[in-house]
């Protein structure tokens, strides 16, 4: 099947951002905290995106910042997916009080908005990168749990799962060999959306001064550092907006395509 144009564009930009994040050390023209000019220089050949509030090259800051943002978001997504999906499958396979306990705990955690919960926890925890990743991953795992439990409940009643049970397979086999492969496509599509959510979340926290701490750069922090310039008509703080929006849209396009492609395999919409 041919890839639709929108998915190809999405895939291209997603790859571009991830590539820039991975190879930041090679492609960034200047160092992360290197002061190379006056504050808020306009766009020029030497500084394609100008300089920031204390004269650091903004393009380099954006590339280094992208590395931090994408790394934190990806790590949180991986954590939330491993935790959420395994617990979700377990709840669906085991049922009974394990299911009740896990589901009610998740209901409870979701009764507090994520941002508020994160702020409450970060008011006493030291704000370091591992803490941020764990807090974001745990809060997001609740959403993954709901989805993977819902998907797995439908699968556990299938004949092949019944057959595996009758063969005497263990729970671990049923979860990883019977349910996981069949639940993979909706989970992968969801993963894209959760990743974007994590990018927005870490950017918001950094903007509020409670995320990635200086001198490390990240996209939310770049907005925070350059927000005073806006009033004088200097658009430096808007560049991360562009980066976050294009990354979000391209990952969304890829996720849509994955979801469409897998539903059409089952004879659904084309």
């Amino acid at each position: 099947m041919r890839m639709p144009l929108s998915a190809a564009i999405g895939l291209f930009f997603t790859a571009l951002y991830f590539g820039a994040a991975i190879f930041a050390g090679w492609i960034a023209p200047y160092g992360m905290a290197e002061i190379v000019g006056d504050s808020w220089e306009p766009w020029s050949m030497a500084h394609p995106l100008g300089t920031d509030t204390i004269g650091r090259d903004l393009l380099s800051r954006m590339i280094w910042g992208g590395q931090t943002t994408i790394f934190v978001a990806a790590a949180a997504t991986i954590l939330s997916f491993s935790l959420g999906s395994i617990l979700g499958f377990l709840a669906a396979v085991k049922g009974g009080w394990i299911d009740q306990f896990l589901s009610r705990t998740v209901d409870l955690m979701m009764s507090i908005p994520s941002l508020i919960a994160a702020l409450v926890v970060l008011s006493v925890m030291p704000v370091t990168m591992p803490v941020l990743i764990v807090v974001m991953g745990l809060l997001d795992a609740t959403r993954v749990f709901r989805l993977s439990r819902a998907v797995a409940v439908d699968i556990t009643v299938m004949d092949y799962v019944e057959a595996a049970r009758l063969r005497g397979e263990k729970q671990v086999w049923i979860i990883f060999r019977e349910i996981l492969p069949n639940a993979l496509s909706p989970l992968v599509a969801e993963m894209g959306l959760r990743f974007i959510f994590a990018v927005l979340f870490i950017s918001t926290l950094s903007f509020l001064g409670l995320g990635v701490q200086p001198p490390l750069a990240d996209w939310g922090g770049i907005v925070k550092e350059n927000k005073e310039g806006i009033v004088y008509g200097i658009p430096a703080a808007l560049i991360p907006a562009f980066a976050i929006a294009t990354l979000a849209i391209s990952v969304n396009l890829v996720a849509d395509w994955v979801l469409n492609r897998t539903t059409s395999l089952k004879g659904g919409r084309g």
Binding site: S203, V223, K227, I230, G233, A237, I244, A245, I249
Partner: peptide, 20 residues
């Protein structure tokens, strides 16, 4: 597009265009 941009950035985009 509006969903893909976090609130605070939407805020600064609005300030940049509507206020400044």
């Amino acid at each position: 597009a509006t969903v893909s941009v976090p609130e605070f950035l939407l805020g600064y985009i609005a300030i940049y265009f509507l206020s400044v």
